[in-house]
């Protein structure tokens, strides 16, 4: 067996899931190959961590906290729509409102025959009372 073949099955060798023949072949290889043995040791150490960390000690106040939460009001009802759908729905409603506003505005101006007058009304004081007249009228 070469190193590449060993690396394919090493994790199953460590959990003893291989046939007796394969187990023996890998075992023999590991006795002679330092690199594969070091990798096997590293992987074994990593997998052993699962056994060390599983079943963590549960807080003694677990039930007390749970009981307090149970006495609180029932969970707030969640929206039926996911957040992206809420945003899309809000945008759609906003767009409809703006379009309706523009449409209603146009309809109203047509009914009353009004056309928007964009021209500015200039107030020209000189036209009303030229400066000469003003000065002549001064006492």
């Amino acid at each position: 067996m070469n190193c590449k073949e060993i690396h394919t099955d090493l994790i199953f060798y460590l959990s003893r899931e291989l046939s007796a023949k394969k187990m023996e072949a890998i075992g023999r290889h590991l006795e002679t190959c330092d690199d594969c043995r070091r990798f096997a040791e590293m992987m074994e150490r990593q997998l052993q961590l699962i056994d060390q960390e599983k079943n963590p000690e549960v807080s003694p106040f677990f039930y007390t906290r749970l009981s307090a939460r149970l006495d609180e009001k029932s969970e707030p009802t969640r929206s039926l729509l996911p957040s992206w759908a809420q945003v899309a729905a809000f945008s759609f409603v906003l767009l409809v409102a703006i379009s309706s506003g523009i449409y209603i505005g146009k309809q109203t101006s047509e009914i009353y025959g009004q056309k928007p007058d964009n021209s500015l009304l200039l107030i020209d004081d000189f036209e009303v009372e030229p400066i000469e007249t003003f000065l002549l009228n001064q006492p």
Partner: peptide, 8 residues
């Protein structure tokens, strides 16, 4: 397991 082995 294969994937874990490859990553390790």
């Amino acid at each position: 397991k294969k994937s874990l082995q490859d990553q390790l």
